[in-house]
Write a protein that binds this DNA or RNA. Structure first.
Length: 700
DNA sequence: GAGCACTGC
């Protein structure tokens, strides 16, 4: 412990913190900032007036760091030192140092906006720029003015953006704490390879043949590339002359890998053996692999981004930033001096790479965050002028406002509704919160709770279904799972959970049906949490029990209606005579139902006239993922609401710059077209039905 | 008839 670099700076840190409300600490990996800052401040009396909070972007980090600190202080975890993550609060009245995820701190500030119990708030790993940390940064700026006399804020960041954070906090002091990384030699390619898989492959074989022992970490973009790489590397290494080099173990590493496969990277290799870990950016920050001496960096990453003008997400392979490139290189220097092979020229790094990764807040839909900020009810905050370190575009904020208006979370004037206030309490996307409230009115809350919980975990539910694992399986996945009775994917998710519930949450049943056990257990936890919050809101007893009996042939009318209200901002109308859809809203898009959907066409092969969707994602084409059939009668009120939409009112009368207003107007179809589009289609649809009828009659 | 990086309340 005494060897941690940060401890030499104790006096300097304490002095700076005493004299300044905000301090930026730049500490590289291995500086000990995550475990030591809180202890230093505790030692020096900062816990006399309150608790020290340390936020982390990830749950595992909050748990493991707090465990470590408790151990170093010789106290029991949960007493003087504790942690709080979703579903797990291990703190007590004795707690003086509390590690928590940034999301948990945001939730806490909903019920206690001044966060009075804390004397110090440390935002750790702020350079990762998680959505929640960015919102906290904005809130802290405001909070230090309110609590100038009794709050200290510390922000830890990576080297490159320390000055920017300091400028944000009126040029607050920056302290540098050296890390404990070994030197990493960086080697650039002379040119960009045509195929980075091929180039990485060649590099890996070269290292294996020539370099002394030490594991190799290879950064690729996704599961497909990784599987290709693994099988080709196995092949090439087998072809090397036997006995000419070390043995080799090749391990894939990515998020959709089963947990028992993921942990394989933590077991050390047998002697005289080199490991090749072929990974996504999961190994950049989330997982640390010991023993890595060589890093091969493709220079690319797969990134999800949101386009507010279309409401669509896309998943693109993009160039990494300088921060990411250096983070990847650093992975080679954890145990001894290492080497990083970059598959791109240094000119590309210098001239093409962005300094820092575009923060999540500029790549996400902001409906949830905007609702959250609005419901904090801070009189001095106008959402379009909220002080963000990197502000999202006004287009993105306006998109969020429009969405919130359509689902009744805010009024025409942009003020939060009483419904919206309740929605903000629920740890869900606004659409699902709205669905729960509507379901409560329609008497199908229990079903809606299940759907919301299933959607929260959806991506972790299915076991990895990669091409290779599918081939290995003798039998294709059994089709015992329900099919949503043709109504769509939400209903299927509900039915899956209900069956599992009937098996008394049987683990084998999950395995038999290729469902991740951990994912399903997570759903159960989420559902329980949502039910508790709903009970609290209703101040009474609601029917939240999962139905015990499977009712055949039901049409899930109430639930689908509730979903239609919740997803009023994510509605699509089928086009005439074919099964393509057009989104209904501010900017209409032509989209398809995702092929994985269980939505069924009618006897004439046509899909429902109207559906709501959980998400628009552009992969090879624009797709709606997770759709649910809804009815024309439920859609009509939404259409009239779209007519009344007025963005400048929604933004609370804030005068957008002239230019922006103009762009806005040109993006919006005029009110007449909004009002008449759907009904024209409706008329056309009736005509089409008539034609079909006449055609059938003629056949006879 | 396609396939999805990573987190989190």
């Amino acid at each position: 412990m005494a060897h941690l670099p940060i401890l030499q700076f104790e006096e300097k840190i304490v002095e700076t913190v005493e004299n300044n409300p905000v301090v930026v600490i730049i500490g590289e990996t291995g500086s000990g900032k995550s475990t030591q800052l809180s202890q230093i401040l505790h030692r020096r009396g900062f816990t006399k007036s309150g608790t020290i909070a340390v936020t982390q972007p990830r749950r595992v980090a909050a748990v493991s760091v707090s465990r470590r600190v408790a151990q170093e202080l010789g106290v029991r975890l949960g007493e003087e030192v504790g942690y709080a993550i979703r579903f797990e609060d291990r703190t007590s009245e004795k707690t003086l140092i509390k590690y928590l995820t940034d999301g948990v701190l945001l939730r806490e500030s909903l019920s206690n906006p001044e966060l009075n119990q804390y004397s110090v708030i440390i935002l750790d790993e702020a350079h990762e720029r998680s959505l929640n940390t960015d919102i906290l940064l904005g809130l802290m700026k405001r909070l230090i003015k309110l609590r100038a006399s009794n709050l200290k804020v510390l922000i830890t960041s990576a080297t490159l953006d320390g000055e920017k954070v300091s400028r944000f906090f009126s040029n607050c002091p920056i302290l540098n704490v050296p890390g404990k990384l070994f030197p990493v030699e960086i080697l650039h390619s002379s040119e960009r390879p045509k195929s980075y898989i091929e180039a990485a492959l060649k590099m890996a074989v070269d290292i294996h043949a020539r370099e002394p022992e030490g594991d190799v970490l290879i950064f690729m973009t996704g599961q497909d590339d990784i599987e290709k790489m693994v099988s080709k590397l196995e092949e090439r290494i087998q072809n090397l002359e036997e006995g000419s080099c070390l043995d080799a173990i090749i391990l894939p590493l990515h998020g959709s890998l089963a947990p028992e496969m993921q942990v394989r990277v933590f077991s050390p290799p047998p002697p005289n053996c080199r490991r090749f870990i072929v990974s996504t950016n999961i190994a950049e920050t989330s997982l640390t692999v010991d023993g890595v001496v060589y890093v091969i960096d493709s220079g690319y990453v797969k990134q999800r981004q949101y386009n507010p003008s279309t409401g669509m997400y896309s998943l693109d392979v993009v160039q990494i930033s300088k921060v990411q490139a250096n983070q990847r290189a650093g992975r080679a220097g954890r145990t001894r001096p290492g080497r990083c092979y970059r598959l791109y020229p240094s000119m590309v790094y210098e001239d093409d790479f962005l300094d820092a990764t575009i923060p999540e807040i500029q790549r996400s839909s902001l409906a949830g965050s905007v609702l959250y900020l609005k419901s904090l009810n801070l009189p001095d905050i106008n959402i379009l002028k909220f002080d963000f370190l990197d502000p999202p575009s006004s287009e993105s904020l306006e998109d969020a406002l429009k969405q919130l208006y359509l689902i009744d979370a805010i009024n025409v004037d942009g003020s939060v509704t009483s419904l919206g206030r309740i929605m903000a309490e629920l740890p869900l996307e606004p659409s699902l919160s709205r669905t729960l409230l509507e379901a409560n009115e329609c008497g199908c809350l229990s079903q809606a709770l299940t759907v919301a919980a299933m959607l929260s975990a959806e991506t972790t539910l299915l076991l990895g279904r990669s091409k290779s694992t599918e081939k290995k399986r003798k039998n294709p996945p059994s089709s015992d799972l329900p099919d949503g009775s043709g109504w769509g994917d939400h209903i299927q998710l509900l039915q899956i959970y209900e069956i599992w519930h009937q098996t008394d949450y049987n683990i084998d049943w999950c395995k038999d049906n290729y469902l991740q056990v951990r994912g399903m257990m997570f759903v159960k936890d989420v559902r329980k949490q949502l039910a508790q919050i709903m009970q609290k809101i209703a101040k009474g007893s609601l029917d939240v029990k999962t139905s015990k009996r499977w009712k055949e042939g039901q049409d899930y009318r109430a639930l689908r209606k509730a979903l239609c209200s919740g997803y009023a901002n994510q509605l699509a109308e089928r086009m005439i005579r074919h099964n393509g859809y057009r989104t209904v809203g501010f900017k209409s898009q032509v989209v398809q139902v995702h092929p994985s959907s269980v939505l069924k066409p009618d006897e004439e092969g046509m899909l429902p006239n109207y559906v709501v969707y959980h998400e628009l994602i552009a992969t090879s084409r624009p797709y709606m993922r997770n759709v649910c059939a809804v009815e024309m009668a439920w859609v009509t009120p939404i259409l009239s609401k779209l007519d009344n939409l007025n963005v400048s009112k929604l933004s609370g009368g804030t005068s957008l710059s002239h230019e922006q207003t103009q762009v806005e107007n040109s993006n919006l179809p005029n009110e007449d077209s909004l009002a008449t589009q759907p009904s024209d289609d409706h008329n056309e649809r009736i005509l089409a039905a008539r034609e079909r009828f006449l055609a059938r009659k003629a056949k006879k």
